[in-house]
Write a protein that binds this DNA or RNA. Structure first.
Lengths: 210, 210
DNA sequence: TAAATAAACGGAGGCGCCTCCGTTTTAGTG
DNA sequence: CACTAAAACGGAGGCGCCTCCGTTTATTTA
């Protein structure tokens, strides 16, 4: 833990030549990430790497060739999940009225944080250690949120005078909330409350759920 | 790393009944700490615990009984070293004129930090994880420094208008200085520079070295 | 001093980490 | 298709972590 150089991202010149992997290598890599995501969600970031390799039906050596350290693997999984979260925003925006999409997405955001709660300590270490990872992902998330907020404001189903960063800030309270057993409910209510505030004074009433 | 509860200090009511250890247990414990301090200094906080037990001529089980986690052991060693540093302040104060004592101690402080440089990452984690450890030790250190500064000011060998916390703050720059190879020299010069500043305008010139 | 018992010891065993290197597979090339 | 070089595979082996529990030792009591 001590002397090992920090596992930072490797290139400044934006991915110059990522070199296509051989077909089998790509297959194995994908499978590993898949299985690892599951394992980390279930057992935390300390999940056994040998078990992951086993479940991916791959030798332990293969795992280590693709991901030299545990942190590498965790980082990939983390980025992938953040990406999924952001893609969900686009999808929701397609399938629902803007304000509903926003609410559903925030709800999903809470779910996502919830699954990460147990890992908070080690994830925090990873995020403070690897600042690129932090700025990349938080930038990506706030961008997704911004689009949702602006779309809803444009549609007139939430008030127009709020900034996306304010909303993110409000959601940020979720991180710091104490780890009570009813944390999940609390956060759900927070989102609803936030939405009420956002809808108050909107030009249109929304034709919404429940 | 993830789910294990933080290894916090255990009692609020200031050490109610620490229960005297059996003679052999105390002996083994002391030896372990001794050896561990050496090992951590040499190999970093990732030093092999089995090796430490071996060198202390003790079973691995004994080590784990005394120190349930690596962090426990690291914490004890760290506290012990901080304590030694502070005791050195008293000793120097006895054996030297106040301003000389101050300079020598700051030099020693730098040496101490130097040996901890390699461990910075994991130590930082430990110190942010265990806030009691941080406040205890930093309090102890600043108290030691305060005495040295005040004694020198009282003796008139440094100016009277400086606050110990300012000095500590100046020394603090050492932490954040980049990890260059000449770091050690730099820090030495910083201390000298600081002393010059402190002596400037003192009521008495010091009858000092070099 | 001897017996009794609570405290401490210590290492075998099971598991995970990670490296190293002989074997297998893929993607070109004629 | 063969053939070949490069790429990728995979697992044995060595080491460290940590737990569990049968054995040893210090202390107390008589």
């Amino acid at each position: 833990m001590a002397e090992r150089p920090l596992a930072t991202a490797d290139e400044k010149p934006a991915t110059p030549a990522p070199k296509p992997l051989r077909a089998d290598a790509q297959r194995n890599r994908d499978k590993l990430v898949e299985v690892a995501a599951q394992a980390f969600a279930t057992d935390g970031v300390d999940a056994s790497l040998e078990e992951i390799a086993r479940q991916a039906e791959v030798g332990i050596g293969t795992l280590y060739r693709h991901f030299p350290t545990r942190e590498h693997l965790v980082e990939i999984v983390y980025r992938r999940e953040v990406e999924a979260l952001c893609l969900a925003a686009e999808e929701l925006a397609r399938d629902h009225p803007a304000d509903v999409a926003l609410e559903l997405w925030m709800q999903r955001f809470v779910d996502y944080i919830a699954t990460k709660r147990g890992l908070a300590t080690s994830l925090r270490i990873l995020l403070t250690t690897n600042s690129t990872l932090f700025s990349d992902t938080s930038g990506r998330v706030s961008q997704a949120l911004k689009r949702l907020v602006e779309a809803a404001a444009a549609a007139g189903t939430i008030r127009a005078d709020v900034d996306a960063s304010d909303v993110l800030h409000a959601l940020g309270g979720i991180y710091s909330a104490p780890n009570t057993p009813d944390w999940r409910d609390r956060s759900g209510r927070l989102v609803k409350l936030l939405m009420d505030g956002l809808r108050f004074g909107a030009t249109k009433a929304s034709k919404v759920p429940r």
